[in-house]
Every structure is written in C-alpha cells, then in structure tokens.
Design a protein around this nucleic acid. Structure first.
Lengths: 171, 171
DNA sequence: GGTCTATCTGTACAAGGTGCCCAGAAACTT
DNA sequence: AAGTTTCTGGGCACCTTGTACAGATAGACC
C-alpha cells in the first residue's frame, strides 16, 4: 500500500492536464508507455483513483450559493434522515460526525432566497431536531489533492523513480 | 446560460463512465459525433465542466481520517490565515462563511493521533482565536453532482433534446 | 556471490478514435 | 418568409490504444 514517487508524479500530471493520454503521459514522465499503463491500472484497482468524473461547477448550472448545515438528529433516526437527505438533489454531500452536531451536509441553491427553500426541505423532516447553517462567502482553497499526493509520495515507501534514465540495449 | 437535456445526459454519461470517448458517447446518446464534440467544448468553455481531474481517495494513500474544523479568526487576519492554511497539505478545502465561525475547512490525517498533529499545525497560528473540530465517521452521501445536473437540465431552459430522432437525408 | 522475482524498456501490429473539414437539412428566431 | 444556429453524416490524415513479447534491471533472498 501507498504510492511511490512515480505514482505521485503521474497523479500530479493527470490533475494538471486530465485530458492527456497514456502515451503523452509516458513522454512527460520519461518512462515507457507500458509502465504508465500498468501504474494506472494498479492505481485504479487499488482504489487510489476512484475515477475521472467530470468536475462540474454548480455555480455554472445555476446554483451559485453554497452552504454547510450542521444537523442534530433524534436518536435512532439516522437511517431515515440519510435516506431523506439523499433524495434532495441540492444536498451534494453528507457526513456523520462527532462533535456538536450529528451530521454535516453541503448544500447548494439558486439564490439566498432559494437556500431558504432548500433548508426548509432539508430540515422539514421528523428526525431532525435542529440545524445551523453557514453560508459560504469565499472559497480560498478549492478542493485539492495535489499537495497531499506530493506529501504521500515523497515519504514512506517511495523507493524513488523506477529507473534513473539508464540505457539498456545500448552497445 | 444553463444546460439543456442533452447536456444533462452527456454529463450523466460522463459521470458514469468517464473513460468513454466522444465517439462512444455520441453512439450512446444517439446523436452525431460532431454534436457531442461541440457540446463538450461549450460546456468546458462555459466553465460548467472544470476538468476531468482524477478523483483520488485520500484513504487509499494513507489518510483515512477526515474532519471538518470551524475556525474563528482575529479581525483583519483573514489573508494571513488563508495563506497559512493553504500551505498545509492536509487542508483539502477552505471556505469563509457566515455564522458562528469565520472559516470552515476540511482536513485529513493518517490516524486520530495524527489528526491532533494536523489540528495543532492548523490552529498554531496567531490569527486563529478558536477552533472546533468534527471528525467524520461515515459518509452516507459522497460528493455527487448527477442529481443536481438532472434537476438543472430537466427544468428551466431545457428545450428538449435537439432533434427527436428524425431522419434527414433519407429518401 | 549467485539466483529469483517483479518491474521496466523498447518494439511491433491491428484496430479504432480524434481532430478537422464540409454541404445540406432541420429547428428556432425575427 | 427569411435568417441564424445547430445538427447530421460523410470523409480524411494522423495518432493513440490495447495487447503481446523478449531482454534488461533492481532489490530480495539464500
């Protein structure tokens, strides 16, 4: 388990230019195409890369308002609340947590006024005792993974890039 | 602005099977290849599709613990705090918000013990007055966009799919 | 030191996809 | 009714992918 430096560079490269193919990636990394192909397959089968889904901006499809809601729920209502929230399209993500609340969810809405409607729909459910909402104003650090990948690849089992560009079948 | 039904279906298709190409997508959607190509370009230039970055699972690279931290910061320290948090790889995302706290960030760590180290690093900064952390236990609804896309495409300006499979150059 | 195993390299080939172009038809707007 | 936008279907040159193989290399083991 874990990723080495080549894996890290490959992930960085894909994060920077997701549309490049295996061949182009191998050229950039200075390794053989087969190597990149094998690494990619391994990363996907290990679950490191979950997929290459399109990164859709909610703001661009009419939902410019984002908010986080902390929910407190009635004992034993967990499963019901989850199902309820799962059925609301504006709930982009839901976590159960320790701490003051019991759940934390990310919401989007068409406007501040519309956010009221979304919140009403979210909390308008028997199992939910209380909710407190924080509206997002700015997003100084958008969801990112590269710095973490770099840290993960640079430490631990990172036996360095496979082969320091040595040449093989050379006379 | 906005997306129509074909855009919606295209986004759904890409979310389901991100590795399919333009040609295959056009076959699935029953439209011409050029149409899919044009739609994709438009969606990207409009910012609806930000990219196709690899979806990396932090847990799979050694960071199985996720937490959300609400931060309260000293007046006027905003920019400094942002820069500080931006330099911490374990900070995956940062928002400034209304409400009780001033900022909300998503953290990951190698373990619960390691989370303490991360939090110390995050809050060990002059501008931060107080922090409260919620550790994520479960993630019943992982970050998703399809339901929202479906809603956005199904309403408003959705003049229906371009052409009800009519045939053209047919005798 | 010698051997084994896992991995990488370089190469080849067939199959198929991509980017780009075009003229004509269809649908929506004015 | 005319004009504009968009979709269709076709073609072409070029490139990438998937797959396979033998030989080279590095690290682990005996």
């Amino acid at each position: 388990m874990g990723i080495d430096r080549l894996d890290g560079k490959l992930l960085e490269l894909l994060a920077d230019e997701p549309r490049i193919g295996v061949l182009e990636a191998s050229r950039r990394l200075g390794v053989a195409r087969g190597t990149v192909q094998a690494r990619l397959e391994r990363l996907q089968s290990q679950g490191v890369i979950r997929g290459f889904g399109p990164d859709v901006d909610p703001a661009a499809i009419g939902y410019p308002v984002t908010a986080f809601a902390t929910l407190e729920i009635k004992q034993g209502q967990g499963p019901d609340v989850r199902a309820h929230l799962g059925s609301v399209p504006e709930v982009l993500e839901l976590h159960t947590t320790t701490g003051h609340g019991d759940m934390l969810c990310r919401l989007v809405a068409r406007s501040n006024a519309d956010l009221q409607r979304v919140i009403d729909r979210v909390v308008g459910f028997a199992g939910i005792v209380r909710a407190s909402t924080a509206i997002v104003m700015e997003n100084p650090v958008p969801l990112r993974i590269v710095p973490l990948v770099r840290q993960a690849a640079g430490s631990a089992d990172a036996p360095d890039v496979p082969g320091p560009p040595s040449r093989h079948g050379t006379p």
